[in-house]
């Protein structure tokens, strides 16, 4: 449980997709004009991430990575399809997004038209692909961990976009120079928030529990040599 909570918190605040890795910026900047549309897009992203990360996890571990196909038969032990990861992840994401687009169009036509082109753009949203690629790099032990990571990344993105939308709504009542109004000031504010988030970069939540076997082996072999060293020293003394 502790591990899952760690992964969740880490992916929301410390590895925040928007402020730490600057992924998913296009939709983030374009859709955050009102809090309402931001919530809509944010939820869509959480949903897409919550499904694509575990599906890609299964794909990666049972089909693509080396030796993954071993459940079909022994002969497939050495098959390594990892080079297809990128394109397979994108295919899964694109299908999910198409599904989400159909659902949103049916249940909330207003949201559909206000999101405009940015709903299908979720498919190339670097945050979504990035989450799957990070999941692959992080090598999670179980699908639950991967799902928690996916959801956490989504929640992090959601918080970021709703946050900036709230700021943008409030800032409409401020004296922003006309040419900077809207998009311009949003870029600058996001830049400043990014600088602020850099303070999170040094926090480490996971303890490295991996046992260092090779170092043990080295210490063992050096013990043998130490015994021999004593012998050598003795011999040298004898010679003198």
């Amino acid at each position: 449980m502790q591990d899952l909570a760690n992964i969740f918190i880490k992916s929301i605040f410390i590895d925040n997709m928007v402020f730490a890795y600057f992924l998913g910026m296009c939709s983030y900047l374009a859709v955050s004009k009102t809090v309402k549309t931001s919530i809509g897009l944010g939820l869509a992203v959480v949903f897409v991430l919550g499904i694509t990360v575990p599906v890609n996890y299964l794909l990666e571990n049972y089909v693509l990575k080396e030796g993954a196909l071993i459940w079909i038969g022994e002969e497939f032990k050495n098959v390594d399809l990892a080079f297809l990861s990128f394109i397979m992840f994108i295919a899964v994401i694109a299908s999910m997004v198409q599904l989400v687009e159909m659902i949103v169009e049916k249940f909330s036509p207003t949201l559909y038209s206000s999101l405009g082109i940015f709903l299908p753009l979720i498919a190339v949203n670097c945050a979504i692909l990035g989450a799957s690629l990070f999941m692959k790099e992080n090598d999670y032990a179980s699908i639950t961990e991967a799902t928690v990571f996916g959801l956490g990344s989504g929640v992090g993105w959601f918080l970021a976009i709703v946050g900036i939308a709230a700021i943008r709504e409030k800032i409409r009542y401020s004296n922003v120079p006309p040419a900077l109004r809207g998009l311009g000031i949003t870029f600058i504010i996001t830049g400043l928030m990014g600088i602020a988030f850099m303070s999170f970069m040094g926090i480490k939540l996971d303890a490295n529990n991996k046992i260092d076997n090779s170092l043990e082996l080295y210490e063992d072999s050096s013990k043998e040599v130490n015994i021999d060293n004593n012998n050598i020293n003795q011999k040298e003394e004898n010679l003198q």
Binding site: P178, A179, F187, T190, G191, L192
Partner: peptide
């Protein structure tokens, strides 16, 4: 700082500012 991403955002923000000063059509209405 210029090497880090946040400054890129701010640089683009400034470019947008300059662009909209020159091209009044792009200025967003209140």
């Amino acid at each position: 700082m210029m090497i880090l991403p946040p400054m890129a955002l701010i640089t683009v923000g400034i470019i947008i500012w300059i662009q909209r000063v020159k091209n009044k059509d792009l200025v967003e209405s209140k």
